[in-house]
């Protein structure tokens, strides 16, 4: 018998005896019927924090949480507005080299900054990316409920671009903002379906952070110290 078979045999033997439902002991909570329990996604929506009723409220919530998380959000009129704000930022922060990926929103922005740019498509040298001051990416969705950015290796130029450079800039359209996590997961399933999953999807909530030293918040533990979102 292989180790795999041994493990599965032990599991199946163990599962011959049923475990009591959660909340069975010392609790007044009546367990739900199991069909209801399996419908966690519907449950999640009604019990998670309220993201607000309409897209204006979602935007407000996203901005409020971003401020708490130290994500900088710029509302922009159009792409030209994004480009001019990006140029200002590049100047203010003294960027010398940027990293980006090929994308209808990102390529023109990288060009507009007029600095040497590393493009991740088709492979790159990690040492070179580590020298870049910023990684500029698109994303799949923004989540109002948690102030998060949902992106994948496919939508955002790979695994490292959004985490290795010290500043991560996201450019997105306002209609990419979804109210809550259940909506975000539904959207991702719609986008990537059964077997088309990118090898990495990530929900980014604020710049990299740690509280490991005396539980004091420090930004930029390993990933980006800054996270900036341009919302068109």
């Amino acid at each position: 018998m292989t180790e795999r078979e041994k493990i599965f045999t032990r599991i199946r033997d163990a599962l011959k005896t049923q475990a009591p439902m959660p909340g069975h002991h010392g609790s007044s909570h009546k367990p739900h019927a199991i069909s209801e329990a399996r419908n966690a996604i519907a449950g999640a929506r009604q019990w998670l924090p309220d993201p607000g009723a309409d897209s204006a409220a979602w935007l407000e919530q996203f901005q409020k949480l971003s401020a708490e998380l130290k994500t900088v959000v710029h509302l922009c009129n159009d792409e030209a507005d994004v480009h001019s704000k990006l140029r200002e930022l590049a100047l203010a922060e003294g960027w010398r080299k940027v990293a980006a990926h090929r994308h209808p929103l990102i390529s023109p922005a990288a060009t507009a900054i007029a600095l040497p740019a590393l493009e991740t498509d088709g492979g790159y040298d990690a040492n070179e990316m580590a020298k870049c001051d910023v990684g500029i990416t698109a994303c799949d969705a923004l989540v109002a409920q948690t102030g998060s950015i949902f992106l994948t290796t496919r939508s955002a130029g790979g695994r490292a671009l959004s985490v290795l450079p010290p500043h991560h800039v996201v450019i997105a359209h306002r209609d990419q903002l979804v109210p809550d996590l259940p909506a975000a997961f539904e959207l991702m399933t719609r986008l990537y379906g059964e077997n088309q999953w990118p090898s990495m999807s990530t929900l980014i909530t604020g710049p990299s952070r740690t509280g490991d030293i005396e539980r004091i918040l420090v930004l930029g533990a390993h990933g980006p110290r800054k996270l900036t979102v341009f919302l068109i």
């Binding site: 498509d121 496919r154 790979g158 990118p198 999807s201 929900l203 990299s208």
Partner: peptide
Amino acid sequence: GYNTMYAGPKQPGESD
């Protein structure tokens, strides 16, 4: 901060 879901090693067409 980061909740990352991995669905395999580098896939065809991916950059890293």
